[in-house]
Nucleic acid binder design. Sequence first.
DNA 1: ATAGAAGTTCGAGTTGACTCGAAGTCAAGC
DNA 2: GCTTGACTTCGAGTCAACTCGAACTTCTAT
Lengths: 136, 136
Amino acid sequence: MYSIQQISQMTGITAYTLRYYEKIGILPSPARHDGKPNGIRRYSDQDLSYIRFIHGLKQTGMKLEDIASFTEDGCLLKQDGEGIEDLPGTLQKRMAILDHHIEWLNQQMEQLERVKGIAEDKRSFYASLLQDHAEV
Amino acid sequence: MYSIQQISQMTGITAYTLRYYEKIGILPSPARHDGKPNGIRRYSDQDLSYIRFIHGLKQTGMKLEDIASFTEDGCLLKQDGEGIEDLPGTLQKRMAILDHHIEWLNQQMEQLERVKGIAEDKRSFYASLLQDHAEV
DNA sequence: ATAGAAGTTCGAGTTGACTCGAAGTCAAGC
DNA sequence: GCTTGACTTCGAGTCAACTCGAACTTCTAT
């Protein structure tokens, strides 16, 4: 179990931002200490890996609103393994959302390839000009 | 030569945004009508292709500030072919910036691959659960 | 028991990237 | 000649995504 600061250091997301993500429903509320330091967030390894996944989507340019669709409906993906006594309908719903995200990732990759192609064309154009110059 | 509205339609960027990009130095000022409708922007094909390139970088998640480094220093890349009597130093500078951008594009692609891998793992995990369920 | 560090909530402020409206110019068509 | 419509500049407004400070609690070490 990790504190918010530890999660912050491990993921590179500030504690401010982690609480903000929780507030707007992008991250599920983690377990809290029920003992002495009441109310303090305690993150599990599952929480950590979920946060990393979300962060990955974020860093590849997905909007928070779109990411939110993942966490919605009672934080479906909070735990990946347990509690799968729920109907296959829920599972299919999760998969549909994932498919949507994968589709988006593919489009991003295509876009990236296109732009990279243009950049490389420009680069080789400059390189050839430089070559010509050197030959004079 | 195109009007700002035509450029807007061809690129999907609003006229407001085009002027904004020009204002903050991301796009070079295009030629203007010097005849009657004084001051009206007239974009060339070169302008168009440059705008498309910039727009591509934008859509792949690059910040305007980082894109700006490309246009800086007197709108170096405004015209790709002409006026190359300038020193090879300038050329090398352009290439260095391009290299930087290509490097960034590569990193984005790696990131995208990573996240896609995680998403696909999740997906196949769900798929297998669904399979198990069906077999009961 | 008291100071300090780290956590809590809440609401306000900042930044980046647009987005728009107002006021004005200009050329063309009725 | 007068309206219409696309352009111009400029400054202000909006929205997403943080980012922070204030006021408070609560454990830990002196």
